[in-house]
């Protein structure tokens, strides 16, 4: 899976940027879903849906030397929803994974626990990218971290623009990611007023 979007000096069309951005997101998910986009009105609604969706994800036991990235992110997604203000140390590994995505545009399914280098050549599943996007935006929601918000939007681009296999569960998860991005945009605009 390769994401070829080049964000460096990408030209912005400032006329109606935001409505057009939101519309593009909705159109993209509706074309994958072949149905209407499920709109989320607040963070708690998304959390309830995430609870159901992450419970359904396959939780593999983490062995001593390697980390199954999906299992790790499912765990992180649950814990970060509960804490009011996550501290930097608890998020360190998330930021390492974030950096890996930013630098290599690709994640793998297992990483070495100590050095956090890839422990397999098997690519990470789409759920990993979606969950990482959700976690990063929850970090922004709780701690105001624009670097997280930024990578989260790139991850959504990645999930929407490449040729992925979309299951119903993946679509619902992706709707949560997009829903969270919409809430954060809305919060930003409200804060400006």
């Amino acid at each position: 899976m390769n994401n070829n979007i080049n964000y460096s000096y990408a030209k912005l069309d400032l006329v109606d940027y935001l409505p057009s951005y939101i519309n593009n997101r909705i159109q993209a998910i509706e074309s994958i879903k072949n149905d209407r986009y499920t709109k989320y009105n607040n963070f708690n609604q998304i959390c309830v849906e995430l609870e159901k969706l992450t419970d359904g994800l396959n939780n593999k036991r983490i062995d001593d030397s390697t980390i199954d990235i999906l299992t790790f992110l499912v765990k992180q997604c649950k814990s970060i929803r509960i804490v009011t203000s996550p501290d930097y140390n608890s998020l360190k590994n998330i930021f390492i994974i974030q950096k890996k995505f930013e630098v290599f545009k690709k994640l793998f399914s297992r990483y070495d626990k100590n050095k956090f280098v890839k422990a397999t050549n098997i690519p990470a599943s789409l759920e990993v990218y979606i969950l990482l996007s959700i976690i990063l935006n929850i970090i922004h929601y709780k701690t105001i971290n624009y670097n997280s918000f930024n990578t989260s939007s790139k991850l959504i681009d990645f999930c929407l623009t490449d040729n992925h296999k979309y299951t119903d569960e993946r679509i619902r998860l992706l709707e949560c990611a997009i829903g969270l991005e919409m809430i954060l945009i809305n919060n930003f605009i409200i804060d400006l007023k």
Partner: peptide
């Protein structure tokens, strides 16, 4: 510490909104 990554157009747009505000 961590460094910042190339900014997504959405956040670049939000920066402009902030400057204008």
């Amino acid at each position: 510490g961590f460094a910042y990554y190339i900014m997504h157009p959405l956040l670049r747009y939000l920066t402009i909104e902030k400057i204008n505000k």
